[in-house]
Write a protein that binds this DNA or RNA. Structure first.
Lengths: 210, 210
DNA sequence: CTTGTAGCATACGCCGCCGTACTGACGATG
DNA sequence: CATCGTCAGTACGGCGGCGTATGCTACAAG
């Protein structure tokens, strides 16, 4: 078939998708050909038709993941003109999409693998850069924007980690709403400083009133 | 020998120590008997003398880790009377001990393993609880202390994660000192709501003067 | 000197996973 | 109908890690 029939690519992407699923639940080591084949109801014969070897599957899964975590993810907030609301949206998304968070943590834990480490670095760098730009759009200078965006991003990631490692301890329900408000107040300054001397005023109100 | 000679336990702990090393660099899967034996200059024959099987080694390593991360770690800050300085010390330690941070992340990534998950949960819970107590000692009520301590702890963990996943992006040198100050200002409130006169005392931020 | 034992080495069988043939079913095309 | 490309099944060899069985050495006790 010369024409790119949609059915052709389906299988290859299904393998990559299944590989991402396996990573999310069992880490990179869980991406093994025969177990994945069993899970998909086929045998290795199918796999080695679509991919040269196991590493090619890992590569394909990584490309799929990178595209989703950068281009696609950012495209979904680019139409938000207000930088404040943009940050809030990113923050909210980071605290709700558990599957995506688990996937990131699993991949980050496997960054010893050279390809994985590369992709994780690129994704992290791009997220950080986008956050930094948003903070600059708030009126912050480059230096402060770098500090604040790193701070905020570390808290994003840390929340996912704590939520996974100590789910009982993590706030939920009404307490989570208070927690979320506290983080927003602390991580997004509302009044920009005229000069750097009164940076302490950025968070004048501290304690949750509720 | 009936008498507990100190030489007896040495080997067993060395195995556990090597297991922790392997975890820190290669995750839980890297704790394999034969590679570890090669690294220690012995063979499996030694291992299966000290341990029943691989899981027993994992268990021993976990116990060693848990003790170090809870009892021992907290004991090193218990003599600090000022809760503010106690939090600063914990924070500073979390941002400097890279090896310990990598170990935590590696173990947390393997919390699918039931024993590992249990220990990670206990360690996280204990750290969070200790932080919460410190915030309460600052004059905070129980509800706020829970929110703030979770916030601070998430940032602890997130910093380790970002430092590992995007080392190029993470602040270093003079920028790190600014970053550290920003986090301290944001994560430890200096003015308590109503009563105490210790606000002025807390206001004096001690900078990490390396 | 004999015996026992602690500690490690050696050799073996087993299993799970990788990768490579080779074969087979099926539809499209000539 | 014969042929070819697509996709999946089957069978095989190899490797690395686990666990066991057994042998070897040093040392202590009697």
């Amino acid at each position: 078939m010369r024409e790119p029939s949609p059915k052709q690519n389906l299988s290859a992407e299904q393998w990559a998708e299944a590989a991402l699923d396996a990573m999310a639940s069992g880490g990179l080591e869980a991406v093994s050909v025969e177990p994945l084949a069993r899970r998909l109801g086929v045998t290795k014969g199918s796999f080695y038709w679509h991919f040269a070897n196991r590493d090619a599957l890992v590569q394909a899964a990584l490309e799929l993941w990178e595209r989703r975590e950068t281009t696609d993810a950012i495209a979904r907030v680019r139409d938000e003109p207000d930088p404040f609301e943009r940050i809030v949206t990113l923050f909210k998304r980071a605290n709700t999409s558990h599957r995506s968070g688990r996937l990131y943590l699993a991949l980050a834990a496997a960054s010893d693998h050279p390809s994985v480490g590369e992709v994780v670095r690129r994704v992290s760098a791009q997220r950080l850069d986008y956050l930094r730009q948003s903070y600059q759009a708030l009126g912050m200078n480059a230096h402060d924007a770098r500090l604040w965006s790193t701070f905020a991003y570390a808290t994003f990631i840390g929340n996912q980690q704590v939520h996974r490692d100590a789910p009982e301890q993590f706030p939920s329900g009404a307490e989570f709403r208070d927690y979320f408000k506290l983080m927003l107040r602390s991580l997004i300054p509302r009044a920009m400083p005229a000069d750097e001397s009164n940076a302490g005023q950025l968070h004048a109100v501290h304690l949750p009133k509720t």
